[in-house]
């Protein structure tokens, strides 16, 4: 009985991997780092299978686990002054872009997203890309609804500002040519 239940649970988790990968990619940009985060999340989830209430989709449970790992990772890095995971090797970074065939415009959006603080980035990505409701996102991120709302509002405004800056810089470069 146990193994049957286990298989069902695993199948349900496997189904969530594409969504988890997308969330991680939006959070971290670098494809390998994002998949590392997904893998860490899956490994942790399997160790804590009992925490998942069966009968429910494992989606929110998995996203919650991943969010905790993401924030831990960001804290460790930011204690040392920077909130970014850098791909060290140029060729590797080129080989694994956040998205295939990045255009200038899409690269600018990805870059801008990375510059938003991790908390705001996570809130914005959960709602704007992953399509969670405010209530769901607030629960997964472990913050009150009001906090979530302001993170989204600020995150979105920050994104807009960053994109505008990039567009201005691009315009200046074109003029200088």
């Amino acid at each position: 009985m146990r193994s049957r239940l286990m298989d069902d649970k695993k199948a349900a988790i496997l189904q969530e991997i594409p969504r988890l990968r997308r969330y991680a990619r939006a959070l971290l940009r670098d494809r390998d780092s994002a998949d590392d985060l997904v893998q860490d999340s899956l490994e942790r989830a399997l160790l804590r299978m009992d925490n998942w209430r069966t009968g429910e989709s494992p989606r929110r449970w998995l996203f919650t686990i991943m969010h905790h790992l993401f924030i831990d990772q960001m804290r460790k890095v930011s204690r040392r002054g920077e909130a970014a995971i850098l791909p060290l090797e140029a060729s590797e970074a080129l080989a694994t872009p956040a998205i295939q065939a990045e255009s200038v415009a899409s690269r600018e959006i990805v870059d801008a997203l990375q510059q938003i603080s991790p908390d705001r980035r996570a809130a914005l990505v959960m709602v704007a890309i992953e399509g969670f409701s405010y209530a769901e996102a607030a629960t997964m991120l472990g913050v009150p609804a009001g906090t979530l709302m302001s993170r989204i509002a600020r995150g979105r405004e920050e994104l807009r500002g960053l994109l505008d800056d990039q567009a201005r810089r691009r315009a200046i470069r074109i003029v200088e040519k």
Partner: peptide, 21 residues
């Protein structure tokens, strides 16, 4: 934003992630 990351859902899942489960 949504368009940018939509393609990730179509990517084949890396074997190491399936293995992790």
């Amino acid at each position: 934003l949504r368009n940018l990351f939509a393609g990730v859902l179509e990517e084949p899942v890396p074997a190491r992630l399936v293995t992790a489960v």
